[in-house]
Structures are given as structure tokens and as C-alpha cells.
Simulated scan of single mutants.
Amino acid sequence: MTRRDRLPLLAGILLTVVGVLAVVLVVNLDRLTAPRPVDSAAVREAITSENLMGHLAELQRTADENGGNRQAGEPGDAASVDHVEQQLRAAGDETRRESVLYQRVGASGTTDVATQNLFADLPGRSERTVVVGAHLDGVANGPGINDNGSGVAAVLETALQLAQADVQLDQTVRFAFWGGEEDGLHGSTQYVAGLDDAGRRNLTLYLNLDMVGSPNPTPHVYGGMGRPHRVERVLSEFLREQGVHPFTASFEGSDHQPFVAAGIPVGGLYTGASEGHTPADPCYHLACDRVDNIDPDMLDLMADALAHGVLTVAR
């Protein structure tokens, strides 16, 4: 091949490389650049403390009628999945369940556990997807209303109100209610492991809500974990506009961790557990983690922040 023959070939290769770099640049800019202003007021106004506390009252009733807990694989867990699914379907959402099977190792030996993940999608105009999740199971010692009925209530109410608002988003939003978190992040780990290459590429963000109604709250926004994403700025700025100055959460023990390990950007909200001299939640993993262990105003604010964040990053 002569030098003159090589010139068109080299030009073609150069154009291909430039095209690939342009796509990569657009994807990264979408993750990192300042968000466009979004008006989330209508959806946030529809998310009320009354509705959120109503979801928690139902989860409390579910635990009370099933041995006092909602532990994965137990009757209270199954009834909790049924309740959330009924709420989603009543709003017109299609739901999908995924079986989660594992073994729980305890002082009395090994127990086979059968629980479920529950999903509902808000379709967008593209194949890109934001997953918003909260673990639905609790511990054996109590009803698990702050940990993690509060996260479930916020995610559920956001899903219901976005469905009612009939919003048009660019990205699909998948609402996920995980099974088996308290025993080792089983539901979320299984979901991430089951993603194919296209599924991982199209999953642009995972948002996690775990304990967002603590009675002595210390509001946190997830940050400093894995690949950066503008959602940290979105959530932090929203909370500051409401007069709340959040801390940064960078812990590992919740359902965002499998996504971090897979290289998927994560974000989330948290109001504290048993850490510190004055615990944010003195009933963490105890029988007193009931409805009266919740700060309704903080839960409402966290749900508003979630709705605002989803509308901002998925549109």
C-alpha cells in the first residue's frame, strides 16, 4: 500500500476514534455536569407525611400480625411484599417479582431462606435506566419501621406519585424493593450479578434509601463511593435550599454496595443509626423500632429530596 493509499484509511480511523470519544464525553458530562433546573414542586406537594406514615402503619400492622417482625423469609416479609405490590398495581404500575434464595447462618444453625425482590418500572424514552431501591426486609428483633420501612415508604410514595403525575422522562426509572438485605445484601447482589453487558452499560445510577426517618436525625447524602455522579450535588443543594445542611455518607453496609463493586454510580439518603454519643436511632434493630420511632417531618423531607433527585437526573 502506498503512502497516498494510506491517507484515506488513516482519516477514516481518526474519524471513528473521534466519534467514540465524543460518545464517552457525552455520557460522562451527563453524569458530572451541573443539573438543568427542574420543577418538582407538584410531585413533592403530592408526597405527604400522612401518606408516608400510612405506609409505615401498614408495615407495622403486618409485623404485629406475623410474629412481631418482617424478617426475610418469614410471613411478615411475604405480607410486606404483597402490600407494596398491591399499592403499585393500584396506581397502574406493572410489577415483577424475582425469587431470592440463600442460607441464613445463625446461632441455632443454618436456615434456608426464600424471599423476593419486587420491581416496578416507570418507562422512559431511552434504554438508559435509573434504579431507585430500598430493602423491604427487617431483622428478627422487631418490626423494622425506620430500618427500613422508612426507605420503603419514601420509594413507594415517590413511585406512586410519579405514576399519577404521568411525567415524561428520558431515562426509565426502576423502583426496586430488595429482599434479604439484613442477612447480607442478597437481593441487590443477585440483581447486579444478573445484569448482562447491555444492562450494566444502560444502568446510569443507583439511588439507595435506608433509614430515612430517624427520630434524632442527622441527614446524610451518599458521596465518595465509587464513580462520581451529579446526583450528590442535586440532593445536597436541594436539602440546603430547605434549610438542612447534610453530612456525607460513605458506608458500605447497604444495597448500594453491589452497584459500587460493579462500577455503577450510586447515590442515596440516610438519617443515621446507632453511631455517635447520641444515636440518631436508639431503637436500631430493636423491638421499639415502631411507627412512634419515626420523625415524620424528616421522612417527608427525605421523600421530597428523592422525588426531586429522580426528576432531575432521569429527565
Rank of each mutant, 00 (worst) to 15 (best):
T110R: 12
G149A: 10
T129D: 09
F119K: 04
N148A: 10
L118I: 09
G142K: 03
T110P: 00
G106S: 13
R128D: 12
G106R: 14
V130P: 03
V139T: 11
L136F: 07
E94G: 12
G124P: 04
V130D: 02
D137K: 00
F119V: 12
H135C: 10
S108N: 09
D93Q: 14
D112P: 04
R104L: 14
E94L: 10
G92E: 09
E98N: 08
A140H: 13
A120R: 02
R96N: 11
D121Y: 10
G138W: 01
N141Q: 14
G133E: 07
R96I: 05
R125N: 06
A134C: 12
A140Y: 11
G124V: 00
L118N: 02
T110D: 00
V139D: 05
R96Q: 15
A107C: 00
R125W: 00
Y102M: 00
L101A: 12
T129K: 08
V105T: 14
T111Y: 02
E127S: 15
P123F: 07
V131M: 09
G109P: 07
D93E: 13
L118M: 06
I145S: 03
V113C: 01
G92L: 07
E127W: 02
D147Q: 13
L136K: 06
T111F: 01
G106F: 09
G124N: 00
R96M: 13
R96T: 15
T115L: 02
F119W: 09
G133N: 08
V131L: 11
G144T: 08
L118G: 01
D121N: 15
D121I: 11
G124Q: 01
N141G: 07
R89Y: 06
R125A: 14
V132C: 05
R89D: 10
E98D: 15
A120W: 03
E127Q: 14
T115V: 03
D112T: 03
G106T: 14
N141L: 09
I145R: 01
Q103C: 10
D112Q: 06
E98T: 14
N148E: 08
G109F: 07
R89S: 13
Q103L: 13
L118T: 04
E98Y: 00
G124D: 01
P143S: 15
V132Q: 01
R104V: 12
G92I: 10
N117M: 08
G138C: 14
A91P: 11
A140C: 03
Y102Q: 02
L136A: 07
V132R: 03
L136T: 08
D112Y: 02
I145Y: 03
G149F: 03
P143I: 13
G138P: 06
